[in-house]
Design a binder for these strands. Structure first.
Length: 108
DNA sequence: ACGGTGACGCTCA
DNA sequence: TTGAGCGCCACCG
């Protein structure tokens, strides 16, 4: 709740943002996947927390990160917006959910 | 330093 | 298959 002043992030947060910047367009990643890629497969919740206070909403394609079950999850600018962008990038979205296929899933 | 919160994940009913 | 519960980590005041 509430975030830090300015764009000052912790090492963990910066790592999360850094990893997400790697996700190419037209592909998606799961919170779990990101956490696992950082060596902290149990920190999936923390990953979401990091994205939540993310200010680089434009620089970081955080909209390409979804839940492990395919649910869209949340989005600082609005979940509906997130869905829209995903569709825009060629990701089939159905009722706030997407089909996580290997072709859409980005592997770190 | 502590407790509460949250863009999650997994298991059980 | 869907919903509820418990556990996980990191950040904020």
């Amino acid at each position: 709740m509430a975030q830090k002043n300015s764009a000052k992030y912790s090492e963990f947060t910066k790592s999360v943002l850094s990893v997400i910047k790697t996700i190419p367009q037209g592909k998606v990643a799961t919170y779990k996947g990101v956490a696992h890629a950082m060596g902290k497969p149990q920190a999936s919740r923390a990953v979401g927390n990091a994205l939540n206070k993310n200010e680089n909403l434009v620089a970081v394609p955080c909209h390409r990160v979804v839940k492990s079950d395919g649910t869209i999850g949340g989005y600082s600018a609005g979940a509906n917006k997130k869905i829209f962008v995903l569709k825009q990038e060629g990701i089939p979205v159905y009722k706030n959910k997407i089909k996580i296929l290997q072709k859409y899933l980005y592997e770190f």
